[in-house]
């Protein structure tokens, strides 16, 4: 069974056609990246698959559950990290993890503390955390729930090299242990390093899809950034 199957997915915001009938699939245990510049519809696709917003057309299934019909079942097996998300500022890091653990069965808080790697600061209020610390806490929150599918919107956006590298390492490690990842990013070099397969998105449609190495070979490019530029030319 495929982890994610998307067929002809469409979403409009009034007259604006944000997603224009895209299709793709993600295998179990795969890290799949949707990449493209800002405003091409990446976040919209992730929000639909995370059951936050409704689709206007097409079909999408997550581990066999249909988006729009089985949303409550889907929420039990996914975990979503919004772009530039924060956490509840008045809570302490540990309280936040415990709060989220109330909603998922079998949460491993000790493991989450290890992933967050905040040391004694896990007992401090979140409002005192840096951006990188909050992001690590949120990634820990996502993985703590042991989701079948982790949906991460720009997981390293705004982070410094050290924090970004740490988060990429965590994602790779979890994928190796069977978690499926669906990631969006406008950082094409990062996705090239991180993802098993990628979909290049532009103007609400997927313009190319494949393994990073295959795409580079197909377009005779040195990196995915170059591939993207050649594809949209």
């Amino acid at each position: 069974m495929q982890a994610v199957v998307v067929e002809g997915l469409r979403k409009n915001y009034g007259r604006i056609k944000a997603v224009k009938g895209i299709s793709f699939s993600v295998a179990k245990g795969e890290i799949f990246g949707i990449i493209g510049p800002n405003g091409v519809g990446k976040t919209t696709v992730l929000r639909i698959l995370a059951t936050i917003i409704k689709k206007d057309g097409g079909n999408a299934k997550i581990f066999g559950y249909e988006i729009g019909k089985d949303d409550e079942k889907i929420r039990e097996i996914i975990s979503y990290l919004p772009e530039e998300a924060g956490a509840y500022k008045n809570m302490r890091g540990i309280e936040y993890l415990k709060f989220i653990s109330n909603f998922f069965e079998g949460c491993d808080i000790e493991k989450a503390i290890e992933i967050a790697n905040l040391g004694e600061r896990i007992y401090d209020k979140i409002e005192s955390y840096s951006k990188g610390m909050v992001r690590r806490l949120l990634v820990a929150r996502v993985l703590m729930a042991k989701p079948k599918l982790a949906i991460l919107d720009e997981p390293t956006s705004g982070l410094d090299v050290i924090n970004a590298n740490e988060i990429r390492r965590i994602i790779k490690n979890y994928a190796a242990h069977g978690t499926t990842f669906l990631i969006s990013s406008h950082n094409m070099l990062e996705v090239e390093y991180l993802c098993d397969r990628i979909a290049l998105m532009n103007n609400g449609i997927i313009v190319e899809e494949g393994k990073p190495e295959e795409l580079k070979e197909r377009y005779d490019a040195e990196n995915i950034e170059e591939v993207f530029l050649k594809v949209i030319k």
């Binding site: 995370a50 936050i52 929420r75 975990s79 530039e84 998300a85 924060g86």
Partner: peptide, 15 residues
């Protein structure tokens, strides 16, 4: 909404 914690809340397995 500002902190985007609502988006997280909406993806939790609760009614």
């Amino acid at each position: 909404k500002e902190n985007k914690t609502l988006e997280t809340l909406l993806t939790l397995p609760i009614k």
